[in-house]
Simulated scan of single mutants.
Amino acid sequence: MNPNIKKVLILAPHPDDGEFGCGATLNKFIQNGATVRYVAFSPCEASVPHGLPKDILYKELNKATSKLGIKPENVTTFDFPVRYLSDHRQAILEELVKMNREFKPDLVIAPNSKDIHQDHNTIHKEALRAFKMTRVLGYELPWNDVAFENRFYVKLDRSNISRKIEAINQYESQSFRAYKEDEFFYSLGKMRGVQVGSEYAEAFEVIRWILD
């Protein structure tokens, strides 16, 4: 891992996006001594399955991030409404600018530019504005990506992928989703690994890369 990357900020429009997109990479950063801060913007109350508590996803988020090794004090959540983040663009931008000023991340990992979900697109665009002087990568979510420029890879081992899957499995309220199956993420990690001569890997879009 790049020794100059000591503080990593992951931007997740919804709980679980960060784990799906780059959970194994976050685990590797933590193993290598980096501080990882995880930010989720919506509790997705309108999408919670009937009969479950409206805050269930944020409760599951706390369990999931702990599986990756992220400290509780490094998890930040907001209450913006799911599917309507674009209506709160300026407020989100102001929060991101504040994070940049206070946390000063060496790397930001956000939704990629080809992600078609409206909330993901909003976070992508506001991240570009807030962190234009910072390294920025876009994570992969195949079910949302109409295209994906996989130009950047992080080599991983099976333990990193296993931690990612452990984290994803904390989202029991989302067990109905087809892409939540363990085998999907082992297979995706294996495919990306084959592309770079590694046991496993996660792929990213290079949005901005800066060499010191």
Rank of each mutant, 00 (worst) to 15 (best):
A91Q: 08
P15H: 02
V48W: 02
G18H: 01
A147Q: 06
K98L: 13
Y153C: 04
N27Y: 11
E172V: 02
T65S: 15
S47T: 08
I123R: 12
S198C: 13
M1E: 06
N121M: 05
N32A: 15
L107S: 04
T35I: 15
V146L: 13
L61H: 09
M133Y: 13
I5A: 06
N160W: 00
D115R: 10
F41D: 12
A178K: 07
M1C: 12
N144T: 10
A130D: 04
E19Q: 07
S173L: 07
T77N: 13
F148W: 00
E45R: 11
K125E: 04
L61W: 07
C44I: 05
P15F: 08
L11G: 11
Y171G: 02
I5Y: 06
D212Y: 15
T35Y: 06
F80H: 01
I161A: 11
N74G: 14
G138Q: 08
Q90W: 00
S113N: 12
Y186W: 11
W209S: 00
R208N: 10
E60R: 10
A40P: 14
H14A: 12
E166S: 01
N112I: 08
L9G: 15
P15N: 05
G138L: 07
A110F: 05
I56H: 03
Q118D: 13
A147M: 01
I161E: 02
L85S: 13
Q31A: 12
S47C: 06
N27M: 10
K7L: 15
E181Q: 12
S66Q: 13
V146E: 10
F80P: 04
E19P: 01
G197W: 05
K132E: 12
N100C: 10
H124I: 01
T77Q: 09
